[in-house]
Structures are given as C-alpha cells and as structure tokens.
Design a protein around this nucleic acid. Structure first.
Lengths: 139, 139
DNA sequence: GTGTTTGCAAAGTGTTTGCAATTTA
DNA sequence: TAAATTGCAAACACTTTGCAAACAC
C-alpha cells in the first residue's frame, strides 16, 4: 500500500495521459491519486475540493472524472442506478458494496481467476467483468 | 425453458404476492411473466404495454416494477448508472451485458459456485452477489 | 496568440412523489 | 363503501452541454 505519493508522481501521470496540469485538474488528481484505493462520487470529490480550498465547479469535476476514466487513471464502477462511483484502482479486482452506508471498497485478494469465464456471444469480446458483493448490516 | 405460461399462472403469482390483480398490474405481469427471462427497463415495458393497447402511465410502470421487485417477482440489475433493468429471473445467476446495444441477458449455466466468497466485513452479511460480464462488438 | 479548459446556468435524463379521481374487493 | 390503485404533473437527483471568459503553453 503506497501512501502519500509525491507531487511529481501525480504530475507525471497527468502528463503521460496527455492532460494539461491545470490548476483544477491537478488539484483533483492530487486528491484522487496521492493515496491508493479511493472510491468517490462526483459530489464527494467536489466537496473535498471545496474543503481543501480549491474552487472547482461540479461540472468540471464531472468532466475531469470522465477524462481521467478515458485516460485509464480511473475506472467507473456502477453499483447504484443514479450514482456513479469512480475507483482509482484500475487493476482487475472486485468490490464490496455496503448497501446501508453506500460505502464501496476493493477486495484486493480476489477470486476472479477461479471464475469460469463464459464464451462471449458471437461477434463480441469480453471488455471487463464486474463483481459486486452486496452486504448489509446484520439484523 | 417454459414459454407461454397460462393466464392463471400469472394471476396466481400476483395473488400469492398479495397484489391485487388490477387491470394495469395484470397486463404488466402478463408481459413480464408469461415467458421466461425477460430483462426490461421501465421505458421498454411502458412501450410494450402501449403497443399492446394497454393504457398505463409511466409512473405506474415504475411503481409496479418496484412492487414486483419487493414481492420477489423481479430482481433489479444495475448495469448502467442512470438506467434500471429488471430481470424476471430471480434465481442466483449472472449476466452478460452488451455495451453497444444495451442488451442484457442471463448466463444460466453460471460459475458462481466456483467463486470463493470473501468474508463480509464485521457486522455485515452478504445480501447478494452481482456478476456482470461486459462485452463489446469485436473491432 | 492559439487552442484548451473552465464556470455557469440551462437543459437533459431517468425516476419518484403528492394528490385527486378511479377502481377493486 | 372502504381501501387500494392509478394518472398526471410537478419535483427530484444526477449528469451533460453550450458558450463566453480565463488559462496554459
């Protein structure tokens, strides 16, 4: 688990993705990429940015999240219809979603390798596989 | 694969779910439950209903889909943020989602049994596990 | 300077809700 | 008739877009 990555790491990742390190972009990238394994919604990230004194519009947060996703800095995880989560871990892995709290976390030591992959329908190929383990508080 | 189930089957399923067989409800139930393995969005179902001459409002379609889901006649599958799919197969199984067409289908002969289930976090229990194989057209 | 990025506000999408009118048992 | 159900329109949450101003190189 790599924490507190240096400023240059974040900068480099932006640059090698071909994205200009503008003030807003860099600020969001730092929030997202300076530590491992973040799962954020646009709204959350927008709050965090505001809290740390960065002025960014929500629209820019959305645009930035999608740019980052296209550049493979992030991965979108769909767990609830009507809310998009973005995951800073772009490796193959799966998720635990806590239905009561809305908290999403990685299962790093995953069992995907033991999942017998189905034959994709003719003319198609597998893009990715999502596994979401939905948990709820014990009653 | 059971096709063309009799009218009484649909009626019985409604009744045993404690749902009054009103005109709209029965019509939607017939569209959904007379054949196996349907995957519909609210909009789709609303169109189908209109096409077959049944007057239902979209709001009622939404309400009905949620009632059916609560009554275990349907299962909601989240594949895209911003669009809810409902599956008439409530058994444990997983899905292939065609990203280009938006088509969703079951993988009946699934491999979930070989998926090593993770320990749920303390105080929680597994509610369900969703597996979505995302495929795309070969380029 | 030139092209990119930003912010705002407005529009868009899919979904839910409040309430009066209707229907069902 | 009483309670459940429906339809409508308005409200809703989240997301995207158009365009002028600001910015990075």
């Amino acid at each position: 688990m790599t924490d507190a990555r240096p400023y240059t790491y974040v900068l480099d990742r932006l640059k090698s993705a071909g994205l200009r390190p503008t003030r807003q972009r860099l600020a969001l990238a730092k929030l997202l990429l300076e530590t491992d394994d973040r799962h954020v919604t646009a709204e959350q990230l927008h709050c965090e940015a505001s809290d740390s004194g960065i002025k960014v519009s929500l629209a820019t947060v959305y645009n930035t999240l999608h740019q980052f996703t296209k550049a493979d800095l992030l991965r979108e995880v769909v767990v609830e219809s009507g809310r998009a989560y973005f995951d800073t871990n772009t490796d193959e892995h799966y998720h635990i979603f806590h239905q009561d709290t809305g908290e999403l976390c990685d299962i790093p030591d995953h069992a995907l390798s033991t999942l017998a992959l189905p034959e994709p329908p003719a003319g198609t190929e597998i893009d990715r596989i999502d596994v979401i383990v939905r948990v709820k508080s014990k009653t």
